[in-house]
Nucleic acid binder design. Structure first.
Lengths: 351, 351
DNA sequence: AGGTACTGTGGGAGCGCTCCCACAAGTGAT
DNA sequence: ATCACTTGTGGGAGCGCTCCCACAGTACCT
């Protein structure tokens, strides 16, 4: 008969049905074994497993996805061009954390870049087709529509770095506030008193929190906050240099700078050099991220390290939990959904 | 009845059937429109398209995959740990080329790392499940079993850098032979006559071809090949330095070095410096890859550039063609399946 | 007029699973 | 002995598509 053409009648990949026949059991039982259900006797399980091994059975993902309405895949969405992704160790570290967690799973990770408009449209289409069970979102700006799209499609998602204090999505972040505090407290403990701050882009929530940490660390130490010591930056090197020049013009007597990123600090260092200030003798410098730049700067830069790999791991765990919760309503004890991980100050010669 | 639980009866995603009803046509017709079959009248097509738009219909990939026995996804497999992937611009560039080609397609790209044994087992499982229609393989060593697995599973695959002259898989490569020739010819044209070569790992076919190019360029110019001017390296910096020291000990009168990679050249430069040789005054140096290292070396390094982005693009095109050929046997005019792309010598201060 | 094409269309069958209902068999209380 | 559970099992129905056969309609030959 073979009404359906040559499409793999016999000789193709074995099916559940064939495994069942071989093991002398029903289809349902094989399915239970494959999916690790406890409701199978040991003898039956062994028989099925033997048949699976003999036949070299591998489940057909498409069939499973269709029947069970899930894909066993999640996406790591990077709303940036590839170039930035590769340039910043942030992503690589995060990927490592996610990958480690995934190893214990059957889940597949997709890496999706959505830097250009075209790519974003493709992504929207992709998500609308529900081709993934959940989404990991990194490096999202305040006005990004992606999180709302995800919410509307009811796709579980976890974001790294909440967009605001009122973030609705499950989020994982490092303690920007505490990290900034530790940087400032460190400078204070080194006897510095006129500590400036070059901020990050203030439409990024984390950057705001770093400013908050800076302010309150000073206040708690009994210092007044001088607004002339705060200068906006934008996470870039040029921005850091410009900000540093402005600060020096306004408060030539400053003796320390806390920059919102290592790249910013590199710019600040440049400007300080040009003005003939020695680091750390005249001005102490502290950065943020503890990236490769920090180690290779001259002098090596004291910096606040974020546990990025851990963040990736936690994001994954939270996402998997959310996905599991949408399935058969086995409500498990969910962790609180805004995780904040501690930072660590790495002291080097610049302070 | 809803025997199947709450699973999206109405209010869920629209199905083909619903679109058909709305457009007042049959299921088959809608399928034809969705898949761009020409066997549909313009009026019908318009009606279906309207219904699709109104309902916001998006095809269910799983159902399609099950019925049509394809996945509309391909994998870029990197048999290396993530770390190396991120460290080398090679991969990033290749990904860019592949991504560009993919934009015109419905295909989804998966990035799969198979650095550890564990990851490799997962990958094998993944491939056995036929979760992708084809595979792009980069950076494969001579003894890698992956290509054979792919062949056995009858999964279309394209490899970057054939494993040998007898490579059976479709491959895309740059002209290692010609690239090496151009480097040597350049050095000859600069008046150098005692040109040494530090090779790459000779179990990599491309490295062998570079040696061939080196030899024949000299021979064709009427020079004898002195085997004492050829020293094995391994693509690493230390290997390059070691090889350079050996060469200097053996032939202290050499006046040029062609290294099989920029990293190797960086090692060689180090060793030359230690021996007090000036570059290029005493010894001219040429590398291979034209990576970031080449530009940042002191002095900037003359290097052979490979069109990596183009290679990615070509690999993709070849793979898509192979996949298409396995489907309804619309045999299209296949390009020959061993593509070799030209290289370009980038001249800088080191030579 | 009858034949032979081709075009456009509808819908049955089937892809390989999961989910769940039905039911047999065993266990322990009444 | 009866009832009430529990445990293990088989298999029907259905997931949403694609493929293909069947057939109506039209066009162009003999």
């Amino acid at each position: 008969m073979a009404s359906h053409g040559a499409r793999g009648r016999s000789g193709g990949r074995p099916t559940l049905e064939e495994v069942a026949a071989r093991a002398g059991v029903g289809r349902g039982t094989v399915s239970r074994v494959i999916n690790g259900s406890p409701r199978v006797s040991d003898a039956t399980r062994a028989a099925v497993e033997a048949a699976v091994a003999e036949l070299g059975y591998v489940p057909n993902t498409a069939a499973r996805a269709l029947a069970a309405n899930r894909t066993d895949a999640i996406a790591l969405v990077v709303p940036e061009p590839e170039t930035r992704f590769f340039a910043e160790p942030y992503f690589s570290d995060m990927l490592k954390g996610v990958g480690a967690g995934l190893a214990d799973t059957e889940m597949q990770l997709l890496l999706i870049f959505a830097g250009s408009d075209r790519e974003r449209r493709r992504l929207a289409q992709y998500l609308a087709a529900h081709r993934v069970d959940g989404v990991l979102l990194v490096s999202v700006h305040a006005d990004d529509p992606l999180p709302d799209l995800l919410a509307q499609l009811e796709i579980p998602a976890v974001i790294s770095g909440p967009r605001s204090a009122a973030e609705t999505l499950t989020s994982v972040d490092s303690d920007n506030y505490g990290g900034a505090r530790s940087a400032v407290e460190h400078l204070l403990s080194r006897g510095r008193t006129r500590i400036a701050h070059i901020t990050g882009r203030l439409d990024v929530y984390g950057a705001q929190r770093r400013v908050d940490g800076y302010r309150e660390a000073l206040r708690d130490a009994g210092h007044e906050v001088d607004e002339r010591l705060i200068e906006p930056g934008d996470f870039t090197e040029e921005g850091g240099a410009r900000a540093m020049r402005n600060l020096l013009a306004r408060r030539p007597d400053l003796d320390a700078v806390f920059a919102a990123s290592d790249v910013t600090a590199a710019g600040a260092r440049q400007a300080l050099r040009e003005e003939g200030r020695r680091i750390p003798d005249d001005v102490a410098l502290v950065g943020y991220d503890d990236s490769a730049i920090a180690r290779h700067l001259d002098p090596p830069l004291t910096s606040v390290r974020q546990p990025i790999e851990d963040m990736g791991r936690r994001m994954l765990d939270l996402l998997l939990a959310e996905i599991a919760d949408r399935r058969p309503a086995v409500s498990r004890g969910l962790e609180r959904s805004q995780v904040v991980l501690p930072t660590e100050l790495v002291t080097r010669a610049s302070s």
